[in-house]
């Protein structure tokens, strides 16, 4: 296996890792809770893209049975990611509900201000 083939073969995964890094950075370093949820979403989608990239087979068609089609892409990662997308929306909505509740109780959704008000309470 020569290198000139190997690099294009892995480039998908590397670009997906860039998404993951951006998403993780948003979650760690940004103070706004809504933006944190958006970062979490980017991370989720990048995991989905990674899984679907694994399921791809060269020349494979969509996994719907037909006599004229010889090769299908791998249906199992598709199923897992279908489940994951829906669960992802469930976690997103729960996170957003928590944000609405935090805003009602503390009047802000910025992490810095929340920490400040906590220190004032102490």
């Amino acid at each position: 296996m020569n290198l000139s083939f190997e690099i294009p073969g892995l480039i998908n995964y590397w670009i997906v890792i860039i998404f993951m890094m951006i998403g993780l950075y948003i979650v760690i370093s940004h103070g706004n809770l809504i933006k944190k949820i958006v970062g979490l979403n980017i991370f989720q989608v990048s995991v989905f893209v990674l899984y679907i990239s694994i399921s791809k087979i060269d020349g494979g068609s969509a996994p719907i049975l037909d006599e004229t089609i010889k090769s299908y892409s791998n249906p199992l990662p598709h199923v897992l990611i279908l489940t994951a997308i829906v669960v992802g929306v469930a976690t997103t909505s729960l996170g957003l509900a928590l944000i609405v509740r935090i805003r009602e109780a503390f009047g802000t959704v910025e992490e810095d201000d929340l920490l400040k008000s906590e220190r004032l309470d102490d």
Binding site: I52, S53, S61, I64, Y72, S73, H78, V86, G88, V89
Partner: peptide, 21 residues
């Protein structure tokens, strides 16, 4: 990538409902 079912769900649930929420 020939994952049509996933594309369907992502477009409706990921791009639609998440953005709306």
């Amino acid at each position: 990538l020939a994952a049509v079912d996933v594309a369907f769900t992502e477009a409706s649930v990921g791009a639609g409902i998440s953005t709306l929420l």
